[in-house]
Protein backbone atom coordinates (compact mmCIF):
# COMPACT_ATOMS: atom_id res chain seq x y z
CA UNK A 1 0.00 0.00 0.00
CA UNK A 2 1.40 3.31 -1.06
CA UNK A 3 -0.68 5.22 1.48
CA UNK A 4 0.97 3.84 4.56
CA UNK A 5 4.47 4.13 3.19
CA UNK A 6 6.51 6.85 4.77
CA UNK A 7 10.02 7.70 3.78
CA UNK A 8 12.33 6.45 6.52
CA UNK A 9 14.50 9.51 6.30
CA UNK A 10 13.37 13.06 5.75
CA UNK A 11 16.03 15.65 5.26
CA UNK A 12 14.39 18.96 5.76
CA UNK A 13 16.03 22.26 6.50
CA UNK A 14 19.70 23.10 6.56
CA UNK A 15 22.70 20.90 7.31
CA UNK A 16 24.09 20.84 10.86
CA UNK A 17 26.87 23.15 9.70
CA UNK A 18 24.33 25.64 8.40
CA UNK A 19 22.42 25.62 11.68
CA UNK A 20 25.67 26.00 13.65
CA UNK A 21 26.55 29.06 11.56
CA UNK A 22 23.18 30.67 12.32
CA UNK A 23 23.60 29.80 15.99
CA UNK A 24 26.97 31.59 16.06
CA UNK A 25 25.51 34.64 14.26
CA UNK A 26 22.70 34.78 16.85
CA UNK A 27 25.22 34.73 19.69
CA UNK A 28 27.33 37.44 18.05
CA UNK A 29 24.24 39.63 17.57
CA UNK A 30 23.29 39.09 21.23
CA UNK A 31 26.69 40.30 22.44
CA UNK A 32 26.64 43.14 19.89
CA UNK A 33 23.27 44.48 21.04
CA UNK A 34 24.44 44.33 24.64
CA UNK A 35 27.68 46.24 23.91
CA UNK A 36 25.89 48.82 21.74
CA UNK A 37 23.35 49.44 24.52
CA UNK A 38 26.17 50.63 26.80
CA UNK A 39 26.60 53.67 24.54
CA UNK A 40 24.04 56.41 24.30
CA UNK A 41 22.82 57.02 20.76
CA UNK A 42 19.80 59.02 21.91
CA UNK A 43 16.60 58.05 20.12
CA UNK A 44 18.64 55.72 17.91
CA UNK A 45 19.45 53.43 20.84
CA UNK A 46 15.96 51.93 20.76
CA UNK A 47 15.97 51.75 16.96
CA UNK A 48 19.31 49.91 16.92
CA UNK A 49 18.24 47.49 19.68
CA UNK A 50 14.95 46.70 17.94
CA UNK A 51 16.61 46.34 14.52
CA UNK A 52 19.00 43.75 15.96
CA UNK A 53 16.09 41.99 17.68
CA UNK A 54 14.19 41.85 14.39
CA UNK A 55 17.27 40.47 12.64
CA UNK A 56 17.68 37.76 15.29
CA UNK A 57 13.98 36.90 15.26
CA UNK A 58 14.05 36.66 11.46
CA UNK A 59 16.95 34.21 11.57
CA UNK A 60 15.12 32.05 14.12
CA UNK A 61 11.80 32.15 12.25
CA UNK A 62 13.21 31.68 8.74
CA UNK A 63 15.78 28.98 9.43
CA UNK A 64 15.25 27.37 12.85
CA UNK A 65 11.49 27.37 12.29
CA UNK A 66 12.00 26.71 8.56
CA UNK A 67 9.70 29.42 7.27
CA UNK A 68 12.18 30.08 4.49
CA UNK A 69 11.76 26.56 3.16
CA UNK A 70 8.10 25.97 3.93
CA UNK A 71 6.69 29.42 3.24
CA UNK A 72 3.16 29.59 1.86
CA UNK A 73 0.28 29.37 4.28
CA UNK A 74 2.53 29.33 7.35
CA UNK A 75 3.83 32.76 6.45
CA UNK A 76 0.22 33.91 6.16
CA UNK A 77 -0.45 32.80 9.76
CA UNK A 78 2.64 34.67 10.98
CA UNK A 79 1.89 37.77 8.92
CA UNK A 80 -1.66 37.91 10.29
CA UNK A 81 -0.45 37.72 13.88
CA UNK A 82 2.16 40.42 13.24
CA UNK A 83 -0.42 42.65 11.55
CA UNK A 84 -2.69 42.47 14.62
CA UNK A 85 0.28 43.11 16.87
CA UNK A 86 1.15 46.21 14.84
CA UNK A 87 -2.45 47.47 14.81
CA UNK A 88 -2.72 47.05 18.55
CA UNK A 89 0.50 48.94 19.31
CA UNK A 90 0.03 51.69 16.71
CA UNK A 91 -3.52 52.59 17.70
CA UNK A 92 -2.89 52.42 21.44
CA UNK A 93 0.14 54.70 21.02
CA UNK A 94 -1.81 57.01 18.72
CA UNK A 95 -4.45 57.33 21.44
CA UNK A 96 -2.02 57.93 24.29
CA UNK A 97 0.12 60.37 22.33
CA UNK A 98 -2.79 62.57 21.18
CA UNK A 99 -4.55 62.97 24.53
CA UNK A 100 -4.95 66.47 25.93
CA UNK A 101 -6.55 67.87 29.07
CA UNK A 102 -10.18 68.74 28.49
CA UNK A 103 -10.94 72.45 28.81
CA UNK A 104 -13.13 73.42 31.76
CA UNK A 105 -14.73 76.86 31.50
CA UNK A 106 -14.88 78.92 34.73
CA UNK A 107 -16.72 77.13 37.54
CA UNK A 108 -19.23 75.23 35.50
CA UNK A 109 -18.79 71.48 35.83
CA UNK A 110 -19.17 69.79 32.48
CA UNK A 111 -21.37 66.79 31.88
CA UNK A 112 -18.60 64.91 30.11
CA UNK A 113 -16.10 65.15 32.95
CA UNK A 114 -15.20 61.97 34.81
CA UNK A 115 -18.03 61.18 37.20
CA UNK A 116 -17.09 60.95 40.85
CA UNK A 117 -20.55 61.57 42.22
CA UNK A 118 -24.01 60.61 41.15
CA UNK A 119 -26.93 58.59 42.45
CA UNK A 120 -26.26 56.62 45.60
CA UNK A 121 -22.93 58.25 46.41
CA UNK A 122 -24.32 61.14 48.39
CA UNK A 123 -22.56 63.54 46.05
CA UNK A 124 -24.09 65.58 43.26
CA UNK A 125 -24.09 63.85 39.90
CA UNK A 126 -22.70 65.34 36.70
CA UNK A 127 -26.05 66.67 35.57
CA UNK A 128 -26.81 68.52 38.80
CA UNK A 129 -25.38 71.97 38.42
CA UNK A 130 -23.81 73.43 41.49
CA UNK A 131 -24.49 77.07 42.10
CA UNK A 132 -21.36 79.02 43.02
CA UNK A 133 -21.46 80.32 46.59
Amino acid sequence: MVRSQVETSSHEGLSIGGYALIYVVLLVLTVATFLLSRHDFGIWSTVIALAIAVAKASLVALFFMQLWEHGGTYRLAVATALLWLALMIVFILADVKTRFPLAVPSNAPMADQPVHGGPGTGKPGPTQRQTPP
Binding site: T33, S37, S45, A49, L50, I52, A53, V60, A61
Partner: peptide
Protein backbone atom coordinates in the same frame (compact mmCIF):
# COMPACT_ATOMS: atom_id res chain seq x y z
CA UNK B 1 10.33 26.22 21.87
CA UNK B 2 11.52 28.56 19.12
CA UNK B 3 8.54 30.84 19.74
CA UNK B 4 9.48 31.07 23.42
CA UNK B 5 12.96 32.04 22.23
CA UNK B 6 11.50 34.62 19.80
CA UNK B 7 9.51 36.33 22.57
CA UNK B 8 12.62 36.58 24.72
CA UNK B 9 14.61 38.02 21.81
CA UNK B 10 12.26 41.04 22.05
CA UNK B 11 11.92 41.13 25.84
CA UNK B 12 15.70 41.31 26.24
CA UNK B 13 16.27 44.68 24.51
CA UNK B 14 12.93 46.20 25.56
CA UNK B 15 13.37 45.53 29.28
CA UNK B 16 17.13 45.46 29.79
CA UNK B 17 18.78 47.52 27.06
CA UNK B 18 16.79 50.74 26.64
Amino acid sequence: WHLVDLIWIFLFPLLYLI
